[in-house]
């Protein structure tokens, strides 16, 4: 049984993703299409919300991924700081722009949904505010990566920022809840009995969520491959200069 850490070797990672990336990409396209088409065209209108409810199939998966991607970056940062695997640091770097896009999708679809539902594009509600704050954290993280020239220094500093930022992001979340009681409904999905969302919605929603996860994975693999190639080019140039 090969160790999981073998994939932390850039060469091994590239070889594996050579065949894995197309598989994941196609899976992402198919699953997301199925989830969204089913969700948009083959679900009944809500008796109160009408067809506007269908934006849920974009909104919820994107919002969920926005948080999951930050968590993934936190894990990757920890792995980089502890085990110094380059792929891990580069994956965190590649994940950030995807995360910020997901956050933005979540915010925009939320605004579009909120307008007919609550009569307002924006409300300073704890959930909305937390997402806006998360957006700012993503921006800071990306800006720090962009500002540092030495790649290993950049990886170290952004990893520490990600860890410290995570603590403050959680604090901000609780501060925002404390600060305002909001309009936003509770979590759309819950495992508790007496669930609020019907299966007719749940099935396509789950499929969309898996689809978004696959989309992220595909983009992440592609982004990480780009980062690895960029590092490799740098290493080659360095080697050339020394020879």
């Amino acid at each position: 049984m090969a160790s999981f850490w073998e994939y932390a070797n850039p060469l091994k990672f590239m070889r594996t993703t050579d065949w894995l990336l197309p598989v994941v990409t196609w899976a992402a396209v198919i699953v997301t299409t199925v989830g969204l088409v089913w969700g948009f065209f083959f679900t009944p209108d809500d008796f109160r919300q009408g067809s506007t409810v269908k934006i849920i199939f974009l909104h919820v998966p994107a919002a969920m991924m926005a948080i999951n991607i930050w968590v993934m970056m936190l894990v990757a940062s920890l792995i980089w700081l502890i085990r110094r695997h380059h792929v891990s640091a580069l994956a965190a770097k590649a994940a950030a722009p995807i995360g910020v896009t997901m956050t933005l999708i979540g915010l925009i679809t939320g605004a579009v949904w909120g307008q007919p539902m609550w009569g307002t594009w924006w409300a300073w509600d704890p959930r909305l505010t937390s997402f806006l704050i998360l957006f700012l954290f993503y921006l800071g993280y990306i800006a720090l990566w962009a500002a540092i020239e030495d790649p290993d220094t950049g990886a170290d500093l952004t990893a520490v920022l990600c860890i410290v930022g995570s603590v403050f992001a959680v604090l901000s979340r609780y501060a925002a809840i404390f600060w305002s009681q909001g309009l936003h409904q509770g979590a759309s999905l819950s495992l508790a009995p007496g669930t609020r969302v019907d299966w007719a919605y749940k099935a396509p929603l789950y499929i969309s969520m898996v689809g978004f996860g696959l989309v992220f994975l595909a983009l992440l693999l592609a982004g990480t491959r780009t980062e690895i190639r960029a590092r490799r080019m740098k290493a080659l140039v360095t080697r050339e200069r020394m020879a």
């Binding site: 850039p10 060469l11 380059h86 490799r232 080697r239 020394m242």
Partner: peptide, 17 residues
């Protein structure tokens, strides 16, 4: 003066080569 690192010495960016 450092020469080109050998492959697999663990130093430098040669993990990417």
């Amino acid at each position: 003066k450092a020469r080109l690192p050998e492959h697999g010495t663990g130093a430098f960016d040669e993990a990417f080569l």
